[in-house]
Amino acid sequence: MQNEVQFAGFGGQGIMLIGKILAHAAMEEGFEVSWVPSYGPEMRGGTAYCTVVISDQPIGSPVIKNPRHLVAMNRPSLEKFAPAVQKGGIIFINGSLISVNSGRDDVDELVVPVVEMAKELGNVKTANIIALAAFVARSGVVGIEALKGSIKEEFAQKQKLIPMNMQAVDAGIQAAKKD
């Protein structure tokens, strides 16, 4: 069984970070993983995307044309990658910045206004964690405990940020249920 998740948005949204957190959580659960960034002459505000492959077998190609799932954090990303998502996959849409839907009726579309939710929590920077948690809760690609463990490890040097990010995880899980 192999899951591929494409994370996409603009530089500064924490796209690379949530991809890494997911890959790390999956590794802790015993899966084979690979994380491939888009890298180019990138800058804050430019495009940013990464692909995470999670498998119970050694991973062949880390380069994926048709990912199973997509987490789109801005509209250009959604328009670029939505057509490539496999039938039956999940398309997560950052409802705060994207006013359209994927145009696909053969996928599970999950729209969450993560920016507003993050502001309610008191830190807009947690929007990416809310998105990741909502996606994980809906897809089950890794367990919530592994996800929380991975976030705690990521913020090990910044302990004071952990409680807020745990709240962000819980908010994401709730959002995935409501939809």
Binding site: K20, A23, M27, E32, V33, S34, W35, V36, P37, Y39, I59, P62, V63
Partner: peptide, 10 residues
């Protein structure tokens, strides 16, 4: 190749 340097794996 560039991917070997840029990719993250366990």
């Amino acid at each position: 190749d560039g991917l070997i340097g840029q990719m993250m794996e366990p």
